[in-house]
Structure formats: structure tokens, C-alpha cells
Simulated scan of single mutants.
Amino acid sequence: MLYGYTPFRGKMRQKTFANILHKDLMFPRSTEVSLQGKQLMHRLLHRDPKNRLGSREGANEVKQHPFFRGINWALVRCMSPPAIDAPISEEKETSVDPGLDDLQTLPLSILGFWAVW
């Protein structure tokens, strides 16, 4: 949701499945996302379900992640969704993956995941 597409999308369904199993998670440089946001994505997309964020304490574990610091979850339930002002495009996206020049890979040690592996 932070980038507008799945990081493992392939041209065909089988390629998407292969990417999920083997492709490293990469972040486009064109959209700035905080370190906490990248950490959250790494934890939610961890290949081992036993070590994935939320696997131990469910949604509460996810809500406690630093990315969500400052969110009052009790109030979120009472909020109305924001209006969508952007027009919906009829064009289909032709690019499957962003160009390699637009991507950066961060080692997990930089993201602080040595404790979960």
C-alpha cells in the first residue's frame, strides 16, 4: 500500500509465486518511505510464517510496531474513510516491475532484523 504495487508481482502467476519464494524485497527510490515503514514490510513479508510479524500475538503485535507509533487504535474504528479525490485511470499499467535503476536493496542487518532470524 505504501508503493501502490506488490513487491513480488510477476508477468504470470507462476512467476509471482517464484518471486515470493526467491526474490529479495526491494524498495523503489522514487517513493520515500521511513526506515520504520521498511522494517514493517520486511517483518510482514518474512518468508518463515513462524517469524512473521503478527504470528505470535496477532494484530496487537502489528499495532505495536514503531511504524504505527502515535496511532490511537480505539479512535481509528470510529473514523470515516477519507474521500478519494484522484480520478481513476482507465489505462492498464504495462510495467510489471520498476527498473533496476529505481530500486535499492537494504541488508537486513541495517533494518534491524538480526534478532528475528
Rank of each mutant, 00 (worst) to 15 (best):
D85K: 15
Q14L: 09
L106W: 07
W114M: 02
L21W: 01
D97F: 01
P107Y: 04
F27D: 04
F27A: 03
R43K: 15
R9N: 07
Q39D: 14
T31G: 02
L44E: 05
L100S: 14
S34E: 05
P66V: 14
F8W: 14
G70I: 00
D101V: 03
H65N: 13
R13L: 03
P98N: 04
N60I: 08
V96K: 08
L35V: 04
M12S: 12
Y3Q: 08
V116A: 13
K23N: 00
E61R: 13
R56E: 06
A83T: 14
L25T: 00
A115H: 11
L44C: 10
M1G: 10
A83M: 13
P98V: 01
L25Y: 02
D85Y: 13
L21V: 04
W114H: 07
R13W: 02
W117C: 07
D48Q: 11
G54S: 08
E61W: 11
F68A: 09
D97Q: 12
R43W: 00
H22G: 00
L100F: 03
I20H: 08
P81L: 06
R43S: 11
W117P: 05
R52S: 01
R56M: 03
N51G: 04
R69L: 12
M1D: 12
E32V: 08
S34H: 07
V96L: 13
P87A: 03
L103C: 10
N72M: 10
L25D: 00
S34L: 06
S95T: 13
G112F: 04
R77L: 07
K15Q: 13
T31E: 03
D101E: 12
R52Y: 00
K63P: 03
G58P: 00
R77C: 10
T31V: 10
L103T: 09
E93Y: 11
Q39P: 02
Y5M: 12
G54M: 04
F8L: 06
M79D: 11
L21I: 04
R9W: 02
L53E: 01
L75I: 04
R77F: 06
M26I: 00
P82L: 13
S89D: 15
T105G: 05
W73Y: 06
H65W: 03
R69M: 05
G112T: 12
R56F: 01
T31R: 07
M1C: 10
K38L: 04
R9Q: 12
K63I: 02
Y3G: 07
M41D: 06
L75R: 14
L40K: 15
